[in-house]
Amino acid sequence: MPKLAEALIVIDMQKALQYSYNFNDLINRINQRIAKYRQSNLPIIFIQHNDSQLVRDSDLWELSKRLDRKPDDLVVEKTHPNAFYKTDFEKILKENHVNTLEICGAQTEYCCNATIVMAHGLGYKLIMEHDMTTTFDNNYMIAEDTISFFENIWSERFLTFQ
């Protein structure tokens, strides 16, 4: 059984990304992790992106309704791929005495990568299960290859896979 970090970070699982690779399966697996964190009374922090293409309060901006989100779960809104950039994310982590993070969500090569690299640089210990991010096919790689490529970069450099 995979161990838990001190907080689960769910990045950008918004309706705008509902057609990304394996989105529905990923939500099911994220909800399984959420259940483990709830059982252990550990915080779950949802990160929600907002910019000129993903406008606050629009339907596509909303977090997926299929996520097991409760009213008292923390939500951090960001305007940059890096969840720490000009947000209160780090303040929330410090207030909750969180030093280890489990990361999951979207998009692998953008918001997940930027947040993982920054968190590592700030000294947080990171864990992740394989295939817990999603993205779209692009002009260079299919989504599965992008996920594998970034997991290879992250492994043992920025985080530990369970």
Rank of each mutant, 00 (worst) to 15 (best):
L122P: 00
C112W: 07
I47T: 04
I116M: 13
E129N: 06
C111F: 06
T115E: 10
L126W: 00
D12G: 06
F46Y: 12
D68A: 07
F150E: 13
M1P: 11
T134F: 08
R69E: 01
N139M: 10
Y140T: 05
L26H: 11
A83C: 15
A119D: 11
K125D: 04
L74R: 08
F149W: 14
I27D: 06
L54T: 03
I127K: 10
R38L: 05
T87K: 11
R33G: 04
Y21F: 13
M128G: 03
N31S: 11
R29N: 04
R66N: 06
R29Q: 02
Y21M: 02
L159F: 03
L26V: 15
I9H: 04
V10N: 07
I147Y: 04
T100M: 03
I92S: 07
N99G: 10
K86I: 01
V75T: 15
E95G: 12
L122W: 05
N152L: 15
T135L: 13
K91T: 04
D72R: 15
H97I: 02
V55C: 09
N28T: 12
M128Y: 02
L74F: 11
N31E: 14
I127L: 05
L8W: 04
Q162V: 01
N82I: 08
V55E: 11
M132K: 04
A143I: 01
F84V: 07
E77P: 04
W61P: 01
C112Y: 01
C104N: 12
Y124R: 07
N50S: 15
K94V: 01
N99P: 07
S40I: 09
N113K: 13
D25V: 14
D145M: 07
A35M: 12
F89Q: 03
D12L: 04
S148T: 10
E102R: 08
M13Q: 03
V76E: 09
S64H: 01
Y140H: 15
M1T: 04
G121L: 11
F23Y: 15
I27F: 00
T87C: 11
K15L: 02
L67H: 02
E77S: 03
D25Y: 12
Y124S: 13
R157I: 12
D72S: 09
H120W: 15
V10K: 10
L60E: 15
E77D: 10
K65G: 12
L63K: 01
G105K: 00
N113A: 08
Q18F: 11
N50T: 13
T135P: 03
L8N: 02
E129H: 05
D12V: 02
S58R: 09
H130D: 08
N139I: 06
G105Q: 06
I30Y: 03
E151T: 01
V117N: 07
D131H: 03
Q162W: 02
H80F: 14
N152F: 11
E129L: 03
L93W: 09
I127Q: 12
T100I: 11
L26K: 15
L63D: 00
T87I: 09
I9F: 15
K94I: 00
W154A: 02
I47E: 06
Q39T: 13
K3C: 06
I116F: 13
T133I: 02
M1D: 11
R33I: 07
F161L: 00
N138A: 02
